[in-house]
C-alpha cells in the first residue's frame, strides 16, 4: 500500500510536462544535440546504412560489373538460384561447421585462460598483452606464419602428426585438414579479445563469494564451476553472440589460404565459406546481384542467430 501511495506523486508531475512539447530550453538543447549528432549520423548513413540498403536493392537485380549503371530488376530470381545452387549449400555447410567448431572452442578456452590469468599474482598485464597481441596483428601475417608451421614436415604439422597419429601433410592444401587449420588460426587470433572480456567479468565477481566457497571446502575447479562461471554469465552470452557474428563472416584467413594462385575456397572447396562464396560471385565471377543476394541471406542468418542465442541463453547471472 505504501508503494501504491508513493507512485502517483511522480506520475502527474511527468504528465504535466508534456513530452510532446518540451520547454523551450530543452528544445534548444535537443537542437544542439541533434546538430552534434548530425556529422556522426551522416557518416553512419553513408558508410553503413546506404551500403546495406544498396546491397538489398542489388539482391533483386542482375548487374554486370562492366556495365554497372545498367541494372535489371529480376525479382526473386537470385534468391531462387541460391535455393538450388549446390555451391551455396556447400558454403552454408562449411560456415555452419566452422561456427560450431569455433564458437564453443574460443568461449571455453578464453574463459579457462581468463580464470587462470586472474589467479596469476604478478605479470598479469604482460600475459594479458601477450594474449591480446594476435588479435591486433595483421590477419595476413598470422595466417602466413601458420601456413609455414603447418606445411608438410613443418614444426607443428610434424609434431601433431606424431602425437595424434595423423598423416604428416600440408594442412591448408588438403581438403580434410584445411577447415581445422582455419579453425586453429581463427581461434588463435580471437582468443585474446575474449580473454580480456572474461577478465573484466571475473574481476566483477565479488571476492567474498570465492572466499566463502573456499571456507566451505570448495576446490579450485568447484569455485570455477559454481562461482566464476555463474558470475560471468552475461559475459559468456556476449562472447557467444559476438563470436557467432564474427565467425559466420570468416573471410580473411580463407582468402589468404587461396592466395597462392588457386581459386577461392581452395583446396577443393574446403574453405569455401559463405563470405568467400559471395565475394567470389560478386567480384570474381561478375555476378554482383547474385553475390548481394547471398549477402542478404548472411544478414538474415546473423540477425536470426543473434536473436536465437539471446533467447536460449538468459542474460541474468
Amino acid at each position: 500500500m505504501a508503494q501504491g501511495v508513493g507512485r502517483p506523486r511522480t506520475a502527474p508531475l511527468l504528465l504535466t510536462r508534456s513530452w510532446r512539447q518540451p520547454p523551450r530550453r530543452a528544445r534548444r538543447d535537443w537542437g544542439a544535440a541533434y546538430a552534434l549528432l548530425a556529422p556522426a549520423a551522416a557518416l553512419l548513413g553513408i558508410w553503413f546504412v546506404y551500403p546495406i540498403v544498396d546491397t538489398v536493392v542489388l539482391a533483386f537485380q542482375q548487374v554486370n560489373l562492366f556495365h554497372f549503371s545498367e541494372r535489371t530488376y529480376v525479382g526473386l530470381t537470385n534468391f531462387h538460384q541460391l535455393w538450388v545452387d549446390p555451391a551455396f549449400h556447400h558454403s552454408l555447410f562449411i560456415t555452419m561447421i566452422f561456427v560450431l567448431l569455433v564458437v564453443p572452442a574460443q568461449t571455453v578456452v578464453a574463459l579457462v585462460l581468463a580464470s587462470a590469468l586472474q589467479s596469476v599474482g604478478r605479470g598479469k598485464t604482460i600475459f594479458r598483452t601477450a594474449f591480446f597481441l594476435p588479435y591486433m596483428t595483421s590477419t595476413v601475417a598470422v595466417t602466413t606464419v601458420f601456413m609455414k608451421l603447418f606445411v608438410e614436415g613443418g614444426p607443428l604439422a610434424a609434431s601433431i602428426s606424431r602425437i595424434f597419429g595423423l598423416p604428416d601433410t600440408t594442412w591448408y592444401a588438403e581438403p580434410s585438414f584445411a577447415l581445422p587449420f582455419l579453425v586453429i588460426v581463427y581461434v588463435y587470433m580471437y582468443i585474446g579479445l575474449y580473454v580480456v572480456v572474461f577478465l573484466g567479468g571475473i574481476e566483477n565477481v565479488p571476492v567474498e563469494l570465492h572466499e566463502a566457497a573456499k571456507v566451505d571446502g570448495a576446490g579450485s575447479f568447484q569455485r570455477f564451476r559454481f562461482v566464476t562461471v555463474p558470475g560471468v554469465r552475461p559475459y559468456v552470452l556476449f562472447v557467444i553472440v559476438a563470436g557467432f557474428i564474427q565467425a559466420v563472416q570468416i573471410f580473411d584467413q580463407a582468402y589468404v589460404i587461396a592466395s597462392n594462385g588457386a581459386i577461392l575456397g581452395s583446396p577443393a572447396g574446403a574453405t569455401a565459406t559463405l563470405v568467400i562464396f559471395l565475394y567470389q560471385q560478386a567480384f570474381r565471377l561478375n555476378n554482383l546481384g547474385y553475390g548481394s543476394a547471398a549477402a542478404v541471406v548472411l544478414l538474415v542468418i546473423v540477425f536470426a542467430g543473434t536473436v536465437l542465442t539471446r533467447r536460449l541463453l538468459p542474460e541474468r547471472s
Binding site: M147, K148, E152, T169, Y172, A173, N260, G261, A262, P267
Partner: peptide, 9 residues
Amino acid sequence: LPDQVGASW
C-alpha cells in the same frame, strides 16, 4: 600442387 609442398607457385 605447389602449395602441397609449401610453395606459393
